[in-house]
Design a protein around this nucleic acid. Structure first.
Lengths: 240, 240
DNA sequence: CAGTGGTCTAGACCACCCC
DNA sequence: GGGTGGTCTAGACCACTGT
């Protein structure tokens, strides 16, 4: 189906912010005027604005108006946001990202994997260790576990490109969400060998569960990032 | 002012989930039934459910129904979420948290502070270094910068308790959001001395800007956490 | 097909800010 | 008081899932 009305409105207002048609720190037209301009109801305008609030682009104050938020300097300098489940390839473009498959096994899950993927000891999982390189420089060492029955027919070609685009586009599965836990860790032998980390370097580790829209856990993974080239960014808006 | 209707509905449904009146992985009544039961319109039910979806408690599928999400095992084990702007005292209870004020100066901001707080070189800032202890064990070393004009009359008593509750409750200011960047770092001399970290220990650093509802940056801080006692958790729901 | 959740409307009322 | 955003309604229509 086509673009929803509130998505259309949000997109157009987002464009105006990018074009500086609505400059930083300025006030934008009131909701009734916007409703007339876009030919939709005020509730639909509100819905679109709520989305932009959560994206951090605007903020509203009851009795006052809706304003464009200025740029966040820290965000401007962020190298690559480590959030979202789009995978590195989509974030940085598939041309810059390459993968070295260190290991790709099928095995029965250990207790941690059983618990995090909500599966039985007899349900086999993929056990995949990949080094992801950006512009041929080691970037992150990803250890991924996925139930075999959810993700059939993994090929070497897929592993060298993007698992996520395979899951999304070929298998037609939709991601519902993720829970992540970020740690600082000491470097292991693998980190030294694969990431070219020094043995005294800290490692930024992201442990995550990703599940599908139907609530089924689909991936449990541990990503070990070089501390000097990667950080994780979070925008946390205090909204309903 | 009183509780809004959608907040009331969300709270009651949240309670039913906690009580297992709506058990994990079960389906809940349809929106029309809920609307009748609570005596509100269906839109209000939808609004309440949307909030619970973002909290990760439920998920809905069009044409099907709304389901209770099972517990996330990784979340159960999380020691203490490092997110939110409530401050440590509120997270863990004021009785367990103590503070050692290492430094509390007023100074003119350097370029980084000017940029992140959006202030002029002539606007003085607090430069506060506090060690936060939980059950008397060093936990996090917080380096905080705040514009003096926004947060007047900081006292030693406030520094030993909670700056956040002072800002929220005494000054009556409301937090609008935060942007955070998480790094893994090498330990510094301060970390060794204050956090009792070993010089070879990694440090989990949270760099953040917090702003108020009117968009004004209010705090820029660097929190250095012991890698073995603290992690940062994020729940990331794929929703509108 | 029946039943579900998602979108959208037109209008009402309220809480709040600023003048 | 005048104008703003926030809440809530009753109802309509649509998209989707299951059978």
């Amino acid at each position: 189906m086509g673009e929803k009305k509130y998505e259309m409105v949000a997109r157009k207002i987002r464009d105006r912010i990018r074009n500086k048609a609505y400059p930083a720190n300025s006030i934008i037209p009131d909701q009734i005027s916007l409703a007339e301009e876009f030919g939709v109801s005020r509730m639909t305008i509100k819905r679109a604005l709520d989305g932009l609030v959560r994206e951090g682009l605007i903020y509203s104050r009851r009795g006052d108006g809706t304003y464009i938020r200025g740029d966040i300097p820290m965000q401007m300098e962020a190298n690559s946001p480590a959030n979202e489940y789009n995978g590195l390839s989509q974030e940085l473009g598939p041309d810059r990202v390459t993968s070295k498959v260190v290991k790709c096994d099928v095995a029965f899950p250990d207790q941690i994997q059983q618990k995090n993927l909500d599966i039985k000891p007899t349900d086999p999982v993929y056990d995949i260790l990949r080094l992801r390189l950006v512009d041929k420089v080691p970037y992150v060492l990803e250890h991924t576990f996925m139930p075999v029955n959810l993700v059939p027919r993994i090929t070497d070609d897929i592993l060298h490109k993007s698992i996520y685009s395979y899951v999304k586009n070929t298998l037609g599965l939709q991601f519902g969400g993720a829970f992540r836990k970020i740690h600082a860790r000491k470097a292991t032998k693998d980190d030294v060998e694969q990431l070219n980390a020094k043995s005294t370097d800290p490692i930024l580790e992201v442990e995550q569960i990703v599940w599908l829209v139907n609530g089924v856990p689909f991936e449990y993974s541990l990503s070990r990032n070089r501390f000097d080239t990667r950080s994780y960014t979070i925008l946390d808006i205090n909204a309903n």
